[in-house]
Computed example of a mutant assay.
Amino acid sequence: MLAEARRMIAEGGLENFSIRKLCQRADVAQRTFYNAYESKDRLIALAIREAYDDFQKFISYRTDPFSLEGVIDRTLSTNRRNFKVRNYTKAIVSIYFSSTTSNDIWKTIQDMTQTGWADWFKVLKEQGLFKEWAEPDRVANEMANLQYSIISDWCLGRLPDEEYLSALFTATLTILIGATKGEVADKAEEMLQTFHISCKLPEFPKPAGRVDGKEISD
């Protein structure tokens, strides 16, 4: 059912997704579905998370995940892929901002963005490169909320394609400049100043990997 749900989301997004259609395509009874997943949102969250995890485990980045360059590289690379999976992206932000989404489903989606930031922020805290007042988990939570908000604006057409990555990039660096100190804050400010002068996003070695036996790159 998860595999079929992923195909349906990719084909038609959430607006065309229904449990009845899913059960017909997966050849299972609706009672079987509800016994296994309880609700449509829970299934969709699991399907989206599974798709994310399946892709990420085959990707090999060439930048250090615990560096400013590494986190910006991953942020830009992940969101460039959103251009290719718009329906998945719309489904993610729709569930994330829905008032009816249960907390555990919301947390499943938030962790896709929040966990990597929290891990790096904790390392910075230990190295004395995080502001004294800043708590790693709280700032990571705020980073996830900010990024999903920008992604939502793009999905809703409020932010054109050509401004999407730039908006995400500048907002991310703004939070980092506020929460970090020392060489990390200096590098973040320098990166932001360079962008405002050149209007060009930084470039990193393209991540590569294999999915379904095929070579892939961002």
Rank of each mutant, 00 (worst) to 15 (best):
R6Y: 00
S18V: 10
I19Y: 07
D41K: 10
L14Q: 06
L14H: 01
D27R: 11
D41F: 01
Y34D: 04
D41H: 09
Q30E: 14
F17L: 14
R6Q: 15
E38W: 10
I9W: 01
A26H: 11
L22F: 04
V28E: 06
R31G: 10
D27H: 14
I19N: 13
E4R: 11
K40Y: 01
R25Y: 01
E4A: 12
E4C: 12
F33E: 03
E38Y: 12
A26K: 07
V28C: 10
V28H: 07
I19H: 10
A5Q: 11
F33W: 08
I19A: 09
K40N: 01
Y37M: 03
R25K: 12
I44L: 13
R6I: 10
A26Q: 12
E11I: 06
L43I: 05
M8K: 07
A26S: 14
S18E: 14
F17V: 06
Y34E: 06
Y37P: 02
D41R: 13
F33K: 02
G13S: 07
D27G: 03
A26M: 12
K21E: 15
L14S: 02
S18D: 15
A5K: 08
D41Q: 12
R20K: 14
E4M: 12
N35T: 04
C23W: 06
R31A: 15
Q24Y: 13
E11N: 05
I9G: 03
C23G: 09
N35Q: 04
A5N: 06
K21L: 15
Q30D: 12
T32L: 06
M8S: 06
E11K: 07
A36R: 08
G12L: 09
E15I: 08
I19Q: 09
N35H: 08
Q24G: 13
A3M: 11
M8V: 03
S18W: 08
L22C: 08
R7E: 09
Y34K: 00
Q30G: 02
E11T: 06
N16M: 07
K40V: 03
F33V: 08
A10Y: 07
G12H: 08
R6E: 11
E11D: 13
E38N: 11
A29K: 14
A36C: 05
E4T: 15
M8Y: 01
A3L: 14
A45H: 00
Q24R: 15
N35G: 00
I9H: 02
R7Y: 04
C23D: 07
Q24T: 13
I44T: 01
I19L: 13
A5S: 13
E15P: 02
A26R: 08
E4K: 14
F17P: 02
A36D: 06
E4Q: 14
T32S: 12
S39K: 13
T32P: 03
A3C: 05
F17D: 04
F33L: 12
L22K: 03
Y37I: 02
E11H: 06
F33M: 04
Y34T: 06
L22M: 09
L43P: 02
A5D: 10
Y34F: 14
L22S: 04
